[in-house]
Amino acid sequence: MLLLSIEEITKEYDGIIALDRISLKVEKGSIKGLIGPNGAGKSTLFHLISGVEKPDLGKIYFKGREITSMESHEISALGMGRTFQTLQIWGNMTVVENIMAGMNRRLKGGLFSCGLWLPWIRRSEKEALKEAKEILDSLGLLGKWESIASQLPYGKQKLLELGRALAMKPELLLLDEPASGLTLAEMRQLSEQISQIRQEGVTVFIVEHHMGMVMEIADKIAVLHHGELIAEGTPEAVRRNPQVIEAYLTRRNPN
């Protein structure tokens, strides 16, 4: 079953075509990888899917609904979580509050019921705290639950961002370069984490700059180069694709 389908999407910045008629499909329950050299348009594609930016042409469907012109918070409310390439945790809150803020969509209560601290708010806050601690426990961050998020080391902040996206119970999780800046050990932990997320029934769409980790965990991989889709298929097929090899080789040896 299709969870996300992108049809003929085009995005242009001041005459430079960032994405040229890209069509992609993400099956429910799978891990899809998107790779490509720097400036290939991977992050742009993610911004378009999550509604941060709007495409010039083309349509995006999520769970059978067209989301092309929706606001980004409406798209997330449909069940699409994401992380950012440049880390975007909320450094002005504690670790556990970051996770609890991620649950915002699922918690009941408006301005007045929260201000008056009505009984059901009290109850839902207590449950949210308990659940947030469980999520932190699964990420191995429980020991730091009360410290300010900006004081965590970089790798832990990356994990926290993942945890925040998980806290909203998404059906589709977009991971934008989750492994960048991580040590090898942290990368291994992340791979395990992602496999576990898939086992819980969450579809994962992952953008990665370097191929190693994606090749390991993804079911299907798409390759972007200069805004064009040059290959799509299983990791094995992609690895042998001559165009892909050329794209990656030319990146390393421009001469």
Binding site: V52, H73, R82, A101, R164, A165
Partner: peptide, 8 residues
């Protein structure tokens, strides 16, 4: 951006 990414 992060706020709207969790549905706020």
């Amino acid at each position: 951006d992060a706020a709207s990414s969790v549905g706020i």
